[in-house]
């Protein structure tokens, strides 16, 4: 690693101010950033650790939504939303491994927007609102492509408000080495319609499968998806699967998610 200092602000305001310094970079749980620092892929002068900011940790529910502090680790989410939003809890409980879940945070995951990460699918399918240090951003406007989001420099995700669907499920088909999603599909049924978000598959990161949403909004059953398929154009091809295979998996996993959601 290149050399840098670490600061540990205790409030969002102090963190924002620290991030205003030259070459400052936010450090969430570090489960993605630290390995990339080891490879010398980043050279911050200061890392601003968000781990000591209590105001961005924790889970609360009200009015059909669950709000998760941006600094809440996956393991806590898996435990604390199990009753209010089981599909989200299950997703959180399957990210990485237990040690990664002790440190990695929902805010860090969304800000990184890895094209194979799980949380972006949950946020997009839930129509979540990403609350930052200075505004609220709808999930539909948040994800802008591979590792790219609507966040501005120095902007911190303080919380994510997930609308709680009537029914939901997330099915992840794991890439055998990294155990990230080779394809992951999150299906969420709300009173006003169904949302389907797909991660791991597209060259542009997480996306909504709108044809499936339309079909499922009329008939929330796996059968409603018969004949629907995502085209392979724009999907990723890598060591672990071709675009065509990913396109196929999207269809399979979406049906399974619908069935599991019940």
């Amino acid at each position: 690693m290149y050399s840098f200092e670490i600061v540990r602000p205790k409030s969002v305001a102090d963190a924002v101010s620290a991030l205003g310094e030259e070459e400052a970079q936010a450090l969430g749980g570090g489960q993605t950033l630290i390995p990339s620092l080891k490879q010398r892929l980043a050279a911050p002068a200061v890392l601003v650790s968000l781990a000591s900011i209590d105001e961005i940790k924790g889970v609360s529910s009200s009015g059909g939504a669950v709000t998760i502090g941006g600094g809440t680790p996956h393991g806590t989410v898996a435990r604390d939303v199990a009753a209010s939003y089981p599909a989200l809890a299950a997703l959180a409980g399957n990210i990485g491994d237990p040690a990664v879940r002790s440190r990695g945070t929902v805010g860090g995951s969304l800000a990184n927007n890895d094209p194979a990460a799980c949380y972006p699918a949950a946020a997009l399918a839930s129509g979540a609102t990403i609350v930052t240090s200075n505004r609220e951003i709808a999930a539909d406007d948040f994800f802008e492509g591979l590792f790219t989001t609507a966040l501005e420099d120095g902007e911190i995700i303080t919380a994510v408000k997930f609308r709680i669907p009537e029914k939901a499920a997330y099915i992840k088909f794991e890439q055998p080495a990294s155990r990230f999603a080779l394809v992951g599909v999150f299906v969420a049924k709300f009173a006003d319609g169904v949302r389907v978000a797909v991660t791991g598959a597209s060259e542009d990161g997480v996306f909504r499968w709108t044809e499936a949403e339309a079909a499922l909004s009329g008939d929330f059953s796996a059968a409603a998806l018969d004949g629907l398929a995502v085209g392979a154009d724009g999907l990723m091809t890598d060591l672990h699967g071709s675009a065509a295979y990913r396109a196929h998996l999207i269809g399979v996993l979406t049906k399974r998610a619908v069935t599991q959601a019940g």
Partner: peptide, 27 residues
């Protein structure tokens, strides 16, 4: 390893299972 996957470095930090190679001493 250097990609936070092997777990040979696991320790407990305030009771939580954590990869010692993916957390700074300052934290």
């Amino acid at each position: 390893c250097d990609t936070s996957q092997c777990g040979a470095c696991n320790i407990h930090v305030n009771g939580a299972n954590v990869k010692g190679c993916t957390i700074f001493a300052a934290e």
